[in-house]
Design a protein around this nucleic acid. Structure first.
Lengths: 195, 195
DNA sequence: GACATCCGCGTACGATCGTGCGATTCTGTC
DNA sequence: GACAGAATCGCACGATCGTACGCGGATGTC
């Protein structure tokens, strides 16, 4: 990997971590340069605009999420195991404070009221995630784990809600029961969709 | 009402609206002064620090939410009507883009990683909201609408999740089905808790 | 009408913001 | 070891940030 690319990757990694704390909008070239111990202009040259930097951080967050949650889930056996894998990995992502995983949610509420490229990208990403969950649910029908008349999109919506609730109670309220509650909700959801 | 107080109130109102778009952290004395057509220093004098301004906006948002959602719900008859009233009003708050109502959620994810007075206040407010829902659910037991062995705190957690999911799909994805989905989830939740 | 209190303004401060540019240093190729 | 290109730096810019202070005008009290 060329030196430039290497540096850029490292910057984006740091950007994700910082954004995980202060939000994508709270990112700052100066602060980022300080953390990476390089000059503002040197860092800036890799992106040529702040928005490009934010988009790069968002893209990295998405990749992390796909690697840690989506892909492992999709390689689990169809049906209940796959659904469980998806849930457990997603949950772990929030529990363990994996920056990339959570940045999604954070940025989503941050930019839902501000038009622009970031909002568009976020909307696209979340739509993709929704579609993936829907698909995972549907694939459960073919192996007989999920009722054929179950509403897969509704399931996706509900699962999303459970995770959002978990993130809030875990990260803001630091409620030790958060994980158990999320798990309980998930089981109820699954039970309702089961054959 | 004294002139100063009047001005201050108007500023806080505007602050809530702006923060609803760009987040509490995105608030800016200069931008606020522009919107209210007064000088930065004149505006600043009412708060004496940016954090105080943010806290004032948050307090106003809370009051709005209590006035529009909590209080009307609590004055509905115990049990299912009260639970429904709470849900419907909360839903309407997000659907109609009532700035105060939604600022809660936005700020919660914004500051969950940044220690300080704002985070503390937000945690307190959300805890209070949780407690209120729990109480509303419990009071449904006494009139026989809710199963005595229903887990009220779990219900609060789940209801919260439904609303968070709704906010996301409505505000970011602009999904026209968002409201129906939220209503469907709510009915399922209620059905599970019913006697 | 004198006076005290309050309110908002003008101006200024040091810091930091995002961005641009020319100079410098590093890296890899012949 | 000369050279080309990439990577980074130093410096500067105009704008804006949060905050401070003192002054003028409005307001209300005696």
């Amino acid at each position: 990997m060329a030196k430039g690319t290497q540096t850029r990757e490292a910057i984006v990694d740091t950007a994700v971590e910082v954004a995980f704390r202060v939000g994508l909008g709270g990112l700052t070239i100066g602060e980022l340069a300080r953390q990476r111990q390089m000059s503002k202009s040197g860092l800036f040259a890799h992106f040529r605009s702040k928005e490009a930097l934010q988009l790069a951080a968002l893209a990295r967050a998405r990749e992390t999420f796909v690697d840690l949650v989506i892909r492992p889930a999709l390689s689990a056996p169809r049906g209940e195991p796959r659904i469980r894998e998806l849930f457990e990995r997603w949950l772990a992502c929030g529990r363990d404070g994996v920056a990339g995983g959570c940045l999604f949610v954070k940025a989503a509420t941050e930019f839902d009221g501000q038009p622009g490229a970031l909002r568009e990208q976020l909307a696209q990403d979340h739509q993709d995630l929704f579609d993936t969950i829907t698909q995972v649910c549907r694939s459960g029908v073919s192996v007989g784990h999920v009722r054929p008349d179950a509403d897969a999109e509704q399931f996706a919506h509900d699962l999303y809600g459970v995770l959002l609730g978990f993130y809030l109670t875990h990260r803001l309220l630091a409620d030790p029961a958060a994980e158990d509650r999320a798990r309980f909700s998930f089981e109820a959801l699954l039970a309702a969709a089961r054959t």
